[in-house]
Amino acid sequence: MTSWLRHHGQSLADALRRLAQEPLGSALNALVIGVALALPLGAFLALETVERLVPRAATEPEMSVFLDLDATRADAERLERELAKLPGVRQTRFVPKDQALAEMGRTEGLADIVATLKRNPLPDAFVLRLTPGANATEAADGARRLGKVAKVQIDSAWVARLQASLAFGRAAALVLAALLGVGLVAATFNTIRLQLATRRDEVEVSRLVGATEAWIRRPFLYSGAIQAVLGAGVAIAIAVGASLYLGPFLARLGSLYGGEITPMLPNPATVAAVIGVAALLGLAGAWLSVSVHLRRLH
């Protein structure tokens, strides 16, 4: 057991020493792996940045019910009771036309227009909040059938569209990550193949003096994993660098929309995940390579 642990330590040290002996080759390997990993990592961080802009509350479907302009206070009270009974409606909120106009006046860019209006063109309205997952279209149809209702608008439709776009983006990033993961395995496979070719004598002599296959394999497995981890480090550095570079541009874009956009930096969990996944893929590539090529050396 202790000799097994010791050999793990020795294999790690051996792999590191060999990397250091060829600094240029090792750096280029890490760079190739790093760029490959930076693409899905960057896509993931970009999606996170956009996702944070979507108000969380809006993921609950919402709709506005506008009344006819001649609807009275009594109509509104009746409608409030009827709307509350519609399937999926969790909450109703009455927005009188005066309040709507006042809110509009506070909205950037609309204040001047509101000030020039001679009379209030807005109707009374209800804002309905639906239970999450409720069928907004069905509720809207129900509301349209009620008297004195002029128009029903599902406000959360844009959120649903954005959510669908983000889901598509996430799926696309996952496909990209899977493809580049395969690329990482292939890159490690090839690197380890070259290492095995240059260390062929050592492998053969080790076998002749009584080394087990596991013992021979171990330094190569460490080598594969270490290279992938170095690549992950490069990928994280690229992602952080790109975020910092793009930060001011996004901030300016955000200020034009009256909001604040800051690019996501990889958090510790993301960093750990990237390094962990890279190490596993590097290990897998090295394992495949060693399994295939050591058998051929027999």
Partner: peptide, 11 residues
């Protein structure tokens, strides 16, 4: 050293 390392002796 190689045969001894392969056999797992302490350094």
């Amino acid at each position: 050293m190689l045969p001894l390392a392969a056999a797992g002796l302490t350094p």
